[in-house]
Design a protein around this nucleic acid. Structure first.
Lengths: 161, 161
DNA sequence: GTTAATGCAAAGCATTTGCACACGT
DNA sequence: ACGTGTGCAAATGCTTTGCATTAAC
């Protein structure tokens, strides 16, 4: 587990160096730190969460830089913004095909790996939309919220059948 | 096409009345106007877009009300917030199972109806996550952006293989 | 008449932009 | 040295909250 993760991080780092060089982008401490933090976690953090996590580790990183660097990573194909119903961007260093489950109560996002879903037939989307990728989004209640009665909280607010 | 849409709108309106009554919520002009607007369009608008559209039609609607009413609709199961990578909430009056294609260039969201995808086997998400629904998100380039060279714009920003 | 919803103004997060300085190459 | 990246501060965009007023039942 830890080994796999470490391997993922170092490979990601190498990939970043390669892509940055290829695109004449500087290899800064900030870029390394942000990529390393993003790759080391599996909780699909927001820019602000990454900022908070890095604050202690390197001196004087700014929120602005985190936003800018993450955007660069998306452009370089090193990370992706994942689809979620919240009004904020969430990032994922894993750009391989995989899927997500989102808790409608606490908004936690967890990875779903399901080989069966990794090569579905792409339907004719119509209107000449050119599909380049897809992912399946599951919604429901996570174990934490189930335990805390999260489901009850929802019905109490008026969700009726 | 128009008939179908009109039927959808009036059914949605009836459903709202039923749900509101059942939950002792008032049937206000604003709620009707917002639901009618949302149900009449297929562009998955943001709260602000709905606000803009209604402005002219009923006198003095406020942005705050639009946000609050949409939230209520989600709680009542009359609408859903759809997953998207942008940092804002988008709404959909269609709560039946269906899927979406999102243009990575202009962020347009279009509906994808594909019976094959409407009853996939829900994988064991693990950690006791209780799945209640899912949808497939396709990403790519829409016809507009294809025509305008949207794809080129992306590669020029540094997306390399 | 009660209870709940709306509108306004202000506050609160999330994100972006302009510009001067600092760093990577 | 040169060009790019960063940090700061301020601006902008999206969403929520508190409170008085108004509308629905």
């Amino acid at each position: 587990m830890c080994e796999q993760r470490d391997k993922f991080i170092s490979e990601k780092l190498s990939l970043m160096e390669e892509r940055c060089r290829r695109n004449k982008l500087s290899l800064t401490v900030q870029r390394r730190a942000i990529l390393e933090n993003l790759a080391s976690r599996s909780d699909h953090p927001t820019a602000d969460q990454i900022y908070a996590a890095i604050q202690g580790k390197i001196t004087g990183i700014s929120r602005t830089t985190v936003y800018r660097v993450l955007e660069t990573f998306v452009q370089l194909g090193l990370a992706q913004k994942i689809s979620n119903p919240e009004a904020k961007a969430r990032f994922d260093a894993d750009t391989r095909r995989h899927h997500h489950a989102i808790c409608v109560n606490c908004e936690e996002v967890i990875d779903v790996h399901a080989p069966d879903l990794d090569s579905i037939a792409i339907p004719d989307v119509g209107q000449a939309f050119q599909v380049t990728d897809y992912s399946v989004n599951f919604t429901g209640i996570c174990r934490n919220c189930l335990a805390k009665g999260g489901a009850a909280h929802i019905t109490e607010r008026g969700v009726v059948s």
